[in-house]
Design a protein around this nucleic acid. Sequence first.
DNA 1: TTGAAAGCGGTACCAT
DNA 2: ATGGTACCGCTTTCAA
Lengths: 332, 332
Amino acid sequence: MIIIASTIKDIAALCGVSEGTVDRALNNRSGISEKTKSRILQAARELDYHPNHLARSLAKGSTYTIGVVCINLSNNFFSLLIEAIEAIAKENGYFINLILTHNDPVREMEGIRYLAGRKVDGLIIFPVGMGKEYEKELKKLNVPIVTVYNRISSDFIHVDVDGRQIMRNAVSYIVQKGYSRVIYMDVGIQNLRRQGINIYSMEERRNGYLEGIKDEMMKEIVLEDFDKDRIIQLVESEKHGKAAVLCSYDVLAIKVLNLFRERGIKVPDQAGIMGFDNIDILKTISPRIQSVDCGIRNLGRKAFSILLRQINKDRNVHDCVIGYSFTEGETL
Amino acid sequence: MIIIASTIKDIAALCGVSEGTVDRALNNRSGISEKTKSRILQAARELDYHPNHLARSLAKGSTYTIGVVCINLSNNFFSLLIEAIEAIAKENGYFINLILTHNDPVREMEGIRYLAGRKVDGLIIFPVGMGKEYEKELKKLNVPIVTVYNRISSDFIHVDVDGRQIMRNAVSYIVQKGYSRVIYMDVGIQNLRRQGINIYSMEERRNGYLEGIKDEMMKEIVLEDFDKDRIIQLVESEKHGKAAVLCSYDVLAIKVLNLFRERGIKVPDQAGIMGFDNIDILKTISPRIQSVDCGIRNLGRKAFSILLRQINKDRNVHDCVIGYSFTEGETL
DNA sequence: TTGAAAGCGGTACCAT
DNA sequence: ATGGTACCGCTTTCAA
């Protein structure tokens, strides 16, 4: 048995009315008698009618779908943020169409083109591309855009925590806990930087660290590789005080914690560790790693609501800085 | 300046040809002279033409998009599998449209309806619904479907590892390592079971454990709560031998590891731990937790390729069991 | 090789 | 309250 999806036309034929009338019934618009309306709805049920969103969107010019262009899902921060965006979008009757870029600007632009071609009402982008050409392309799409995580430029509304300020404060926070040295760890972005990929977020965080170090008049040390011996050597050379490792993201902090355990360095007695993002898995790891909570749900809500205001032609939208908090941790 | 997306009509007008001819040029179909073709392509570039996929799909009846209906993204196993599906889909010129169900069958059916209304060419579902009504609804959609993770019934093609067999073998594997007791840990499904939600995968795993226990003529112990004292008591009561905790998923294994560390139980000297899924984060945790690798990439590829064969009207498709391997671990 | 026109399934406006 | 119809943008078939 072949099932052919029924259409408005089928219902109209069955009820002996026009397509327009069926539309009035189905979308409860005015100008229809209760009697014909219920007759039509009944017929729709019998025929197991379900609307074709393609046709509807084509006719209406809007899809009630927003495109989300994300880097990957392995990163727990990203997947949680997408869950948050999905949830708030759903509350507002929107669906999301997800594209992954895997840090490839070409893939990214392809994906964005696809979404634009599918006429999404707006885009939330975790950008990996950058530059004048890139911006021009995006603007030509003429679709409302909100960026998160990485910023493109001031021409695009950006919603995020202020990673720079947070890291700057983190340095002071660590110093106040009595540490005499703060080592910054920032692994895996050299390659991306070399390829001209947008690493705004990571650079902000590192610059914040550098500013914090200046504030405290300390000596800066930035590690761009996970060089175990180097880390240990740095920590152990801190004879008259104690060193802490400030990591640009939590996974690094976990690795440092394991390294210290491996080498018999007691945390936080002999050295401190602090991460960033407060990813889920930290809950299951002991000792509880000190981290920064970026209020992912809030971030997702804000990003969506600002996008929605753009979609609804609100001209008065601006960047939004999300609040954060230092978590309670046992590693500082 | 308002930018209006250009259409085939615009190109046709600019070139003084018909829309049909423009279509021939754009989709390099036969029946057009090189000269007009290049003229049209040139015009398309000038007008910055990009196809409207909604219209195209409506006309062609296919979208080159597959719907993925997943439970959530917090679970690393799910997010990795989705990454794998996305990658292979992309290789084949397909995009994915993602819906999250959060273990809610109502949300799930809404999402599936939406995807069907958007005329996706096929669906990959991590089902949470079950039952005759549910199956009937799905069948009525008349869309190719592949299920992963949970099975619905033999009426739907299913692709996954054989969790039952794996767990059964895991018991023997543990016993061969010299353990005298295997405790099974399976937290968080009681609620779902009570609500009538599909937990096929988790039940298969547990049943496999029970079978393994029978094979080995041991005593079964299934823990459905993370009761720290109970776990410790069970482990410590194993005086003449050693107990291992077999966990239905890795996050539990991490928690058990932490518990043991907290209570001073040496792993694997005094007790063993084994997880399931081999999620990413295990790489960063030491000691390396013994787990089961389900070849997620392979699973994603197979699920997609079987779906694709269904889309292409291949009648000869069957369930597929994915190979697995026990990882190298330091906790057994 | 090219043009004309009839769809695809809804929506929306103008008559009646 | 209802019918009729011209779109939305692209594809496809039949004539020319």
